[in-house]
Simulated scan of single mutants.
Amino acid sequence: MRVLILGGTDFLGPAVVEEALARGHEVTVFHRGRQAPPPGVEVLRGDRTVEGGLTALSTGGWDVAVDTWSGAPSAVRDTARLLSDRVGHYVYVSSRSVHPFPPPAGAAEDAPVVDSSPDAGEVDYAHAKRGGELAVERFFGERALSARAGLILGPRENVGRLPWWLSRIARGGRVPTPGPRDLGVQYVDVRDLAAWLLEAAGRGLGGAYNLVGPPDHTTIGELLETCVQVTGAQARLCWLEPQDVLDSGVEPWTQLPIWMPPGKFHDGMHRGDVSRALAEGLRCRPVAETVADTWAWLRDLDGPVPQRSDRPRVGLDARAEERLLRRWEERQSS
């Protein structure tokens, strides 16, 4: 296939590029030039946020476009309009965040979504992604695929969730860890997501799909214990009760990345219905492979860990960690 990737230099983009090239596809990357493009691709440069920024896309044709845009829906609208008669299938990487948070446990693609518009300018993340879906649907109809990703982990992660856990555990010592150990974690490896996007586009799938692994794929215990194993660190995981974490004033998800305490917020994030994508071939590699490959990427980095400028930094500072360890010590002595 001839594949156009709109934004191909950051986390998911390079994963799609690598997967497409491995399958023998011809790949074109359209981006702003802020980072080096992956090797082996045709490069088009432009900025979707400025007038005339789509000029490089005014000619040419592709079988598939994969769009990872997270900003104003109007930028997706303008791109989809321009490409509507020169692209066969348009894949928009959306998010499960299009559902009002938290969605109920087991929420599928037909759960309620936020009210947004394809003509909107800068809006919050949920409304941006929903507006982007509507923009692609307006111009591509049944040729539009909305891939509603959940938590994405793997090499090149630029939010810092799994990289933070790996880096902290690698330092060794006592590591405050939020329980219970058997609490489910629902995520998708970025490479499995990339593979599914290309397969689905090649088969002409349309509509919305929740794109994240099954709820029982792993647990917080298996994930963090695997981090200890792959780093070879002299680290002790100090398991805390969820209420102890909350009573210490530590924020789930941000200060303790990936983790949500049991309840409606955990259910909304880690218990979504992904049966539709699984039935259409979504395959999820073992958690040990995701963790090991992310650690290998971190060790090979020549510079700081990438960080998205539009997302807050995650992880515990020294004071918060100390509070949690004191709480753990109190539990041990009681």
Rank of each mutant, 00 (worst) to 15 (best):
70 S>D: 03
152 I>H: 05
331 R>F: 00
263 G>W: 02
222 E>R: 13
9 T>L: 10
69 W>K: 02
329 E>H: 09
97 S>N: 11
62 W>C: 04
175 V>E: 03
295 W>S: 01
274 V>E: 02
17 V>E: 06
133 E>Y: 08
250 V>K: 05
206 G>F: 07
142 E>H: 08
307 Q>E: 13
215 P>T: 08
161 R>K: 12
150 G>Y: 03
1 M>C: 10
226 T>P: 06
207 G>T: 09
11 F>M: 08
241 E>Q: 14
48 R>L: 09
246 L>Q: 13
187 Y>R: 06
145 L>Q: 08
242 P>R: 01
156 R>H: 14
283 R>H: 12
280 E>N: 15
151 L>M: 14
18 E>Y: 00
276 R>I: 05
202 G>V: 08
165 W>A: 03
231 T>G: 04
300 D>S: 15
99 H>Q: 13
33 G>S: 12
76 V>M: 04
209 Y>G: 00
40 G>W: 14
56 A>K: 11
298 L>D: 07
144 A>W: 05
170 A>G: 04
268 G>D: 04
149 A>K: 02
241 E>I: 00
256 L>C: 02
210 N>T: 08
221 G>M: 01
299 R>F: 00
53 G>C: 12
182 D>M: 00
66 V>H: 05
157 E>A: 10
149 A>M: 14
26 E>R: 14
34 R>F: 07
58 S>N: 06
56 A>F: 10
19 E>M: 08
247 D>E: 15
106 G>R: 04
65 A>V: 15
197 L>S: 03
275 S>H: 05
274 V>I: 10
106 G>H: 11
322 E>H: 13
18 E>P: 05
38 P>C: 06
311 R>W: 15
19 E>S: 13
329 E>V: 06
225 E>M: 06
196 W>L: 15
259 W>F: 00
71 G>V: 05
329 E>G: 03
6 L>R: 09
138 R>E: 14
114 V>K: 07
203 R>N: 12
213 G>L: 09
238 C>R: 14
153 L>F: 09
190 V>S: 12
134 L>V: 03
53 G>K: 06
116 S>L: 03
245 V>N: 10
58 S>I: 10
1 M>Y: 11
146 S>T: 00
56 A>I: 12
284 C>S: 13
78 D>H: 10
298 L>Q: 14
324 L>A: 02
234 Q>D: 15
249 G>M: 00
196 W>S: 02
79 T>V: 12
50 V>Y: 03
14 P>I: 12
76 V>P: 01
159 V>P: 10
297 W>N: 11
136 V>I: 02
211 L>D: 02
237 L>Q: 04
113 V>K: 04
93 V>I: 14
173 G>I: 12
252 P>E: 02
289 E>T: 13
283 R>V: 15
251 E>R: 12
312 P>T: 02
154 G>E: 06
258 I>M: 13
198 L>N: 03
249 G>I: 07
205 L>S: 08
134 L>Y: 07
174 R>D: 15
220 I>Q: 11
47 D>C: 09
8 G>E: 02
86 R>E: 06
306 P>E: 08
33 G>H: 07
88 G>R: 14
49 T>V: 05
74 S>Q: 11
284 C>N: 12
